[in-house]
Amino acid sequence: MSFLDYFRGKKTNTNTANVAKERLQIIVAHERGHRKQPDYLPALQQELLAVIRKYVDISDDMVQVEIDRTDTCSVLELNVTLPEK
């Protein structure tokens, strides 16, 4: 803060630390979710996408593949969004 700023007072105090914290919380949670996923998942997602594309025209982000693990079993969760006709 310079000499003149002192008399003007603080005005543009955008709290960038809060922005940083929020962005980090989101990306870290996202990456932690992916960390537990098996290595073959991206390939599986691509192949599923190719199969579905034989019949319906969909974009890459319209197939979500995730694996949820519980104590006794794993659930392969497949979420396909089809475009509106």
Partner: peptide, 16 residues
Amino acid sequence: RVERGEMLSVADVEEI
């Protein structure tokens, strides 16, 4: 800088 809201605080880093 933490007090001015320009830097993540220790509590923020610990929480994340």
